[in-house]
């Protein structure tokens, strides 16, 4: 059984960061998980919870442009960082090109892995605009999908790559 001392929450402090471009100040225990902060405190539920051990990628967000598992990230690690969730990708008038590619190719079924998958693809293409098959596999092997068998996902990634290439 837990000792009483274990049950004391870590003392709260104030953290500043931006989430989807907006300044955010939160008073939180330093070890609170970013996933809980996003989903519960900020009520942005596009970021999903599934394994909570960094294996499935359902919780993927961008921190300063790099894909990170929000379930493994603690509040103090976000201090001063720019966080982008799936809700921050689309513009009011149009989907992000990666989102559009997933929509066009049917790169999703139940959709539960999709936000995390799209975040990982976005990060990949920012990093390597024209990735090889091997690079795609490597970049996405931390994102599990149980529904699609990845066929539609791979087609969506390729479409996103092609469209990026066509854009000036």
């Amino acid at each position: 059984m837990k000792k009483q001392s274990d049950l004391q929450p870590a003392p709260s402090s104030v953290f500043h960061c931006t989430v989807n471009g907006e300044d955010v100040q939160l008073r939180l225990p330093a070890d609170k998980r970013l996933l809980a902060i996003i989903r519960e405190d900020m009520e942005l539920t596009g970021t999903k919870r599934s394994c909570e051990i960094g294996r499935c990628g359902a919780c993927m967000v961008l921190i300063d442009g790099k894909p990170v598992n929000a379930c493994l990230t603690m509040a103090y690690q976000c201090s001063g960082k720019a966080i982008t969730t799936i809700e921050g990708l689309a513009r009011p008038e149009s989907l992000h090109p990666v989102q559009q590619a997933f929509l066009d190719e049917g790169g999703y079924q139940c959709g539960y892995c999709t936000p995390g998958m799209i975040i990982s693809v976005t990060a990949l293409l920012e990093d390597i605009p024209n990735p090889s098959e091997g690079e795609i596999e490597e970049a996405l092997s931390g994102n599990l999908c149980r529904c699609t068998g990845y066929g539609g996902i791979v087609r969506a990634v390729k479409r996103a790559i092609d469209q990026r290439r066509e854009r000036p």
Binding site: L95, L103, T114
Partner: peptide, 21 residues
């Protein structure tokens, strides 16, 4: 006949709230 699914936009934007959300 290849069409975007009606539940697609909500799924790719994260706007669709699942029952556990």
């Amino acid at each position: 006949r290849w069409r975007a699914r009606p539940d697609g936009p909500g799924k790719v934007t994260g706007a669709l709230a699942y029952l556990t959300d």
